[in-house]
Amino acid sequence: MAEMPAVETPQAQVSAVLTQSEVKVTSGFRGVTISVYGAVFDPEGKPADVVVTLRGPDQPVRIARKVRIAGVWLNSRPVVFQGAPGYYHVSSSRTLNDLGRFAALRQLGLGIDHLAIAAPAERRTETRYGIRDMVVSSLGADYYDWRSAVVRLKAAGGLYAADERGVRFVDKGLFRADIQLPAGAPTGRYQAQIVLFQDGQPVSVRERVLTVEKAGAERALYLFAHERPWLYGLVSVIIALGAGWLASRLFRRS
């Protein structure tokens, strides 16, 4: 590798756009498909792989394990996992482990296995195997079970997904990826990351931003409920009592 030509080879570049940069959550919202279009510019024409991730705002996850005590299933003490995105979708042109080196994937946090989901409150340092200050989770050896449960349960709600054939090259150097955003996806600022891989290394990265926000009546009601909660409660009670009264009036006449 050291014997490279003296002339600096122009690096391959990736560029991409989202079909929409804003998603409005209104009363009819049933989820949406976001498409990412992009192109790979590489004068040398080396084989290229693309990974597209869409990451929603962080949402700590509280998770408990069901334990059976005296024949009854109870919840264990809940554990909080910080750093878990509220939504995460990764699509790639090949299996992630085939197209990129482990270290590169880990560093960029690409792929569900490499998400930095941790339970910091549950960690402590201690001396183990003669090594000082090892970070140990008090979840112990089960730690992997807990983490994979977070991923599994999120995936069941369509909030975490991986699509290993999701990035399709539609023409030479042109690619496309479709990403499903379910109705339950959290609102907030989403980061889309488009990474070009060559020879197992990330060569070029693009970032795009997507905002998902409530709009119209949904937004107004949500803000009302959170900014003036007591007045909101009063209004909801008045609606309930009024509707009950109205119904009895209507039926009395008929």
Binding site: S27, A225, P229, W230, G233, S236, A243, G244, A247
Partner: peptide, 29 residues
Amino acid sequence: TSMLQAGRNQTVDIVLSTLLLIGGVLGAQ
């Protein structure tokens, strides 16, 4: 209870409860 749940926990969904009570008050009669 609704007042307190709305005020303390912000968990009253006015759209949900309105949908339910439209049917509810008629059905009750």
